[in-house]
Design a binder for these strands. Structure first.
Lengths: 339, 339
DNA sequence: GGGTCTGTTGAAATCGATTTCTTTCAAGAC
DNA sequence: GTCTTGAAAGAAATCGATTTCAACAGACCC
């Protein structure tokens, strides 16, 4: 492993000069050229560990996500990475596995490794603690979920709007009895999506002069997982008057709901299904599955941008950016069959 | 940020003693206790950058994969991570995006960051160059694909066996004209899977006394992507005597093939489809889709084990482990319909 | 009592870069 | 000719840990 001193000796200059050549100090053209040539010959590349130690900052940013197997987060990761490429930062990805303890360990590593900054999709809104990072002045951006009380920049999704859009779309297609399967009670993402559903359905029922109480009957809380979605859908199907459409608050539960519907023999478009978040491949098979597209890639890209600003020393008040969802209509099947 | 010197001063000992307390040196019980208490009070955690510089090795292993959005690789990543947890190594994940240049950059970073070791699923069998790492004595394990000429440990999938198993299964279900859509010509994974197909089909045709030439007609090379799978399937369907079953050599192309089949109105089980590699969600919707399960998680787990052995200094000849695939039969639909 | 051994300890060297501090030298001003 | 100014370059300090080395104290044996 050739070091800066090897290069210095071979080029007949001091280590300081070599460093200046690579970091934009003042060096006469002739020497700079000689240093560069020697460095190339020896295959020198600066030791990042030593550099980080001296600079008290590495050129790596950490990205902590709760589920590496969820396409939403991998797409987000792509966004972060592409943005980081532009400024020579490298991204290291850490999978907290929805486990606050594992996440804590990774946050500690980020500190101990003196990473330039961290982007976190928190494992828990309540228990994720970003304060140690903030305390030591490490730039942090929260993405998708903002831990309670954390004073950091954030990039979020407009969940309520997405819920409204989804529900309105199902109604516009002619479905009448629209249900909602949302995530855990208390989780902000599931509550916000549900709120969107409530708003639109409530208006709809009022216009129709129908009983608002029906709204509640068609709401199920589940756990954002396949099995939970399935159970909730089965439960809805057992109602005396089952829904003819359902808004499912995430992609995994949608898979479960589709399973339940398949068993009941009432697949889309007979029963309308609208998923919050893309269901990457099932949608190829189920052309009538409309989804609320989450701006996952943009979330990552935007978060990385904010982080880089902070790393660069930009001094402005904390920001929260909210990105909108968009409805992806796969095929206009005209809604429920008319029989 | 409290350093080891702060702790030393506060505890009235030397930095060397503090270091020994945390690294298992000989220190009298009384002092050790005092140091530990002081460290806890000051919230000291050793600076990993400084430690890495001194030890010339960090406690991070790199995992370089070519496509973070492919569930095969994310599952592999889980395996690596779970295995690494056990020895306090942390894993950082880098996405080479099937780009040899990007991959080269990450390999360089691994060196410059003095990572403890690297696990690589190479972007290219020909052009990925692992020799710089090997030259500097950094432990490397290749996984899934072994770059040509690289002398490193490797963990591979038994592609040929998987291809045989898949083809045999389709025949056993009663399909007659089985086709194969494989990856790019020259790629080892696609050639091996195809070889498995050829072996079994060739035997089958011979037994039946049929013309071996038919084998070739039913083979298509594509690109391991959705669109390629679709195009290949469309092409096969245009044959005067289209296949009644197809073995598709990866998950993404299977999605494409299913699209083509849906348009042609001959979905499984009417036309048999067997995917090499899981198609996570489509399979929930297409119960009759049998898949060759790749041991992705185990690949990661095993590779991490090999790497840790090397990091620990185990000295044994280079090893290549080959893991078998397993057939996952989703539902015995009894093969093609009898009409 | 002198000599050897062993177990603790701290001072100092070390890892490899960056950055500060000096020194040197030359150009330009008066 | 002297003084000022500024650029260029090297020597040395620095980052924060680990590790080597030397010093020392106490136990033990002749």
């Amino acid at each position: 492993m050739t070091t800066i001193n090897d290069v210095a000796r071979a080029a007949g200059v001091s280590a300081a000069t070599v460093s200046r050549v690579f970091n934009g100090g003042r060096v006469t053209a002739e020497r700079a050229e000689r240093v560069r040539r020697t460095a190339a010959e020896l295959g020198f590349s600066p030791n990042r560990v030593a550099r980080s130690l001296r600079k008290q900052r590495s050129s790596v940013i950490g990205l902590i996500i709760p589920d590496i197997e969820n396409p939403f987060f991998t797409s987000l990761a792509r966004g972060v990475e592409d943005a980081a490429q532009q400024t020579n930062l490298s991204v290291v990805l850490c999978n907290s596995d929805e486990d606050v303890e594992k996440e804590r360990r990774y946050l500690e590593i980020a500190l101990a490794e003196q990473m330039a900054g961290v982007i976190v999709a928190a494992a828990s809104r309540n228990r994720t603690d970003l304060s140690p990072l903030a305390a030591r002045g490490m730039p942090v951006v929260a993405v998708d979920r903002r831990p309670r009380g954390a004073s950091v920049d954030a990039v979020m999704v407009d969940n309520q709007h997405g819920g409204e859009e989804a529900t309105a779309h199902l109604l516009s297609e002619g479905y009448e009895r629209v249900a909602c399967i949302t995530g855990p009670e208390g989780a902000s993402t599931s509550e916000e999506r549900l709120a969107g559903f409530r708003t639109v359905m409530s208006d709809h029922l009022r216009e129709r002069g129908e009983d608002q109480a029906r709204l509640r009957e068609y709401i199920r809380y589940a756990d954002f997982r396949v099995e939970g979605g399935r159970a909730a859908m089965e439960d809805l199907l057992r109602l005396p008057e089952p829904p003819d459409a359902v808004f499912v608050a995430n992609n995994l539960m949608t898979v479960g709901a589709l399973e339940a519907l398949r068993e009941a023999g009432t697949l889309p478009p007979e029963t309308g299904v609208l998923s919050f978040g893309d269901v990457p491949w099932a949608s190829l098979v189920h052309p009538s599955l409309t989804t609320v597209q989450l701006p996952s890639y943009d979330l990552g890209w935007t978060a990385a941008g904010l982080l880089q600003d902070r790393i660069g020393g930009v001094d402005r008040p904390l920001q929260t950016l909210v990105l909108r969802t968009s409805l992806q209509v796969r095929a206009s099947t005209g809604g429920p069959s008319a029989d």
